[in-house]
Design a protein around this nucleic acid. Structure first.
Length: 422
DNA sequence: TCTGGGGTCCTAGGACCC
DNA sequence: TCTGGGGTCCTAGGACCC
């Protein structure tokens, strides 16, 4: 049986989430900003039309914002994460195999669904998601994941198609690939696109026909897989359920520049605690910690450094990870620098239940420490916003990010429910 | 005066993604 | 004044070994 994939992608996802709870935003230009109210990371069609670029620093768009009355929101990831869960569970009812690819995208295996008619099945998916969550999506259907991405783009770019496009017929595929610039193909970034252009390859059809050996020599096996996918041969794995993360990174730009070691220690402690919580939520322990700090890259005398260390035996115990991270910070902290951001990476994971005993050191699994962490996580899960935390994270948090246009957490907090005034 | 070749493992960093 | 954050995978090159 031939493989068939549907890629479902939420349109302007963060903006759409804001619109669900604030219908007055309909047909208005709306943008959602990155943390610290920095760049535009989600834009409504109207905002794109008035010229706000993806990733544009919002302070450079002030004139456009005022002139067109653009509605601006701080990122509200608690809300978006919850809305994403709802979209994904709606999608799960349409396939036995769902691969959640990102917060706003998922692949559905439609193998064996031929009799439903792919196009009408795609339309059914689209209207069900809209009805159950209020989020508009686009659906692209094709024999490989890469081609389903192409089909999804086509559905988005052609409003007349009603948000769903099916790319199955061989001749049809080639006709559309010819119209698709290489830069738009999934897996071809700026660097590779430039190289291909310099060698006379401008559209996806030309890439599809390029010789394997030449591609492998100059662009590695990654692009070779893309090539096969364009030819209709599935060459990317389809994983579900989601495997555990192999690395967890928590990093933030500060709301204000930070110089003091004390404040840097608090920030590092807060981020490593956050990372440890994610670590425990997938029942892993970490065998490696890295801490990195940097000053403002847009100002003179830039300083960036990182330090790392192995942890044996691996652990998920927050106090130990905090101590380790603080030790690493002291190695790279330089007096007199004005730091703009810092971060923590945990990696080299093992399953907490498969942890080997260590002859000389206490092991996390089965310890009192592990039980303490379970209690902490359970409490914070119910309380939703981390009311229980370690003193090392600090109380004042003057470095905490700026968010001056944040909407409410409508779906996860009783005290922030949507109010309807009649 | 001479200094191979091949394998493995690890890390840093690049490219790409959303 | 103000420029995001969190991932994956791959490659090159060094260290080490025989």
């Amino acid at each position: 049986m031939n493989k068939v994939f549907a890629l479902v992608d939420c349109n302007s996802f963060y903006v759409s989430c804001e619109r669900v709870f604030n219908p007055a935003l309909k047909n208005k230009p709306v943008v959602v900003l990155s943390n610290n109210d920095g760049c535009a990371i989600s834009r409504s069609q109207e905002a794109k039309d008035v010229g706000i670029a993806m990733g544009a620093p919002i302070f450079q768009c002030e004139e456009l914002v005022n002139r067109h009355d653009v509605r601006v929101f701080s990122a509200n990831f608690v809300l978006y994460g919850d809305m994403s869960d709802r979209v994904m569970s709606a999608l799960a009812s349409f396939t036995p195999n769902l691969e959640i690819y990102s917060i706003d995208e998922a692949f559905l295996s439609l193998e064996g669904f031929e009799n439903y008619g792919y196009l009408s099945y795609g339309r059914k998916i689209r209207s069900a998601v809209k009805e159950r969550t209020g989020i508009p999506v686009s659906v692209g259907i094709a024999p490989t994941k890469t081609l389903s991405k192409v089909a999804n783009h086509i559905a988005k770019d052609n409003p007349g198609m009603g948000g769903v496009f099916c790319l199955i017929d061989e001749k049809d595929i080639d006709r559309w690939l010819e119209k698709t610039p290489v830069k738009e193909i999934w897996g071809i970034g700026a660097e590779k696109a430039l190289f291909l252009n310099r060698n006379g390859i401008f559209n996806a059809l030309q890439l599809k026909k390029a010789p394997d050996e030449w591609i492998k020599k100059h662009l590695t096996v990654v692009t070779l897989r893309t090539l096969r996918e364009l030819r209709g041969i599935p060459s990317l794995s389809f994983d579900e359920p989601q495997p555990n993360k192999k690395a967890i990174v928590t990093s933030r730009t500060f709301g204000y520049e930070v110089s003091g070691l004390g404040e840097m220690q608090e920030a590092v402690s807060a981020y490593v605690s956050k990372a440890a919580q994610k670590l425990r939520s997938q029942n892993s322990v970490a065998g490696y910690v890295q801490v990195f700090i940097e000053t403002n890259p847009f100002k003179g005398s830039y300083y960036r450094n990182s330090a790392s260390i192995d942890i044996t035996p691996p652990t998920a115990y927050t106090p130990q990870l905090v101590e380790t991270a603080k030790g690493l910070l002291s190695k790279i902290y330089k007096e007199g620098c004005r730091y703009k951001s810092c971060g923590v990476m945990l990696t080299n994971f093992s399953d907490e239940n498969l942890l080997a005993q260590d002859l000389f050191k206490p092991v996390y699994t089965g310890s009192l420490n592990q039980r303490l962490m379970k209690v902490l996580d359970e409490y914070n899960r119910r309380a939703d916003s981390g009311q229980l935390f370690f003193a090392a994270q600090g109380l004042g948090k003057p470095w905490f990010m700026k968010q001056s246009h944040k909407s409410k957490r409508f779906t996860t907090r009783w005290d922030e429910l949507l109010e309807i005034k009649i």
